[in-house]
């Protein structure tokens, strides 16, 4: 008995020691956590909202694409947004794509075809750096390449709630998180802009969105917040185009495994009934 008390005391003191150490280690949170948004694609039965994706694509095409490429997404993929093959052909033809060499050995430009990929609007990273004061990241997987720390215990709950929208919450927050002026005492470097949610706050990208900048034909509000939501949803689709089928197959697999596990459980009971 005395010994088990000893073990408990040891465990307790170990916990206490480390807990004090943690408390000392907790650094002040400079960057606030992005607020949670409602996304149509979250959860086990999540679906992309086609209308939203098309609006988001419009924002990308008219605003973001000036600086940001999307090299892993092909025009043909846009049929998933609800566009017809003809519409996709027309969209592809709006872009110029380099092809070649032709019979004379020259590279040439031609209209895009559905099989082509979204072009990157700069020649190479050095050119981008010279022009934009940084390399605008490619949009293809950006929604999966961004995120934030959820912290204990939330990261454990996230397994069960299937919260996976760290990236889109962050990007949305970034879009609406610009401040006209940096807070007093913050030394904003030349050519940077102050953003609440960007790590370090000084971001090289000027505020890209403003109210009424992009026309919507479906009557959705033409506000920065709506643009941010739509383009972020579009980016999620670009990063994870097979999400809907993944979740659908996932549900079927779950049902199957539950049935199989149930059958195996009773089969196991029958088999072991002989052994007792």
């Amino acid at each position: 008995m005395a010994r088990s008390v000893l073990a408990l005391v040891l465990a307790g003191s170990l916990l206490g020691l480390t807990a004090t150490a943690f408390a000392a280690g907790e650094s002040s949170h400079e960057t606030p956590q992005p607020p949670r948004q409602k996304w149509s694609f979250s959860g086990p039965f999540g679906h992309y909202d086609r209308g939203q994706l098309q609006r988001g694509f419009k924002v990308y095409k008219e605003v973001c694409a000036v600086c940001h490429g999307m090299k892993y997404v092909a025009f043909r993929n846009l049929t998933a947004l609800g566009y017809s093959e003809g519409q996709v052909k027309a969209i592809a033809a709006e872009y110029k794509v380099q092809d070649g060499p032709n019979d004379q050995g020259e590279m040439f430009e031609r209209d895009g075809r559905p099989a082509d990929y979204f072009p990157t609007p700069w020649k190479n990273e050095n050119a981008a750096r010279a022009q934009y004061n940084g390399v605008p990241p490619d949009f293809s997987v950006l929604a999966k390449a961004r995120g934030y720390e959820r912290g204990f215990p939330w990261f454990i709950f996230d397994i069960f709630t299937q919260f996976q929208e760290h990236g889109v919450d962050y990007i949305h927050a970034l879009m609406v998180g610009y401040k006209e002026k940096a807070p007093a005492g913050f030394a904003l470097p030349q050519g940077s802009y102050y953003n609440d949610y960007f790590p370090g706050h000084a971001i090289a990208m000027p505020p890209p969105l403003s109210d009424k900048r992009v026309d919507y034909s479906d009557g959705s509000p033409t506000t920065v917040d709506q643009y941010a939501k739509d383009v972020t949803a579009f980016m999620m689709w670009a990063a994870e185009p097979h999400m809907e089928i993944r979740k659908r197959i996932g549900f079927q697999v779950m049902i199957f495994l539950l049935v199989l596990a149930g059958l195996l459980y009773f089969a196991k009971k029958k088999v072991w009934a002989d052994a007792h």
Binding site: V259, L260, L263
Partner: peptide
């Protein structure tokens, strides 16, 4: 009892094929 085993085996086989 055999039915239970056959059902289990069948479901497992269908899953494996899928």
């Amino acid at each position: 009892r055999d039915f239970l085993y056959i059902a289990t085996g069948t479901v497992a086989a269908v899953g494996g094929a899928a």
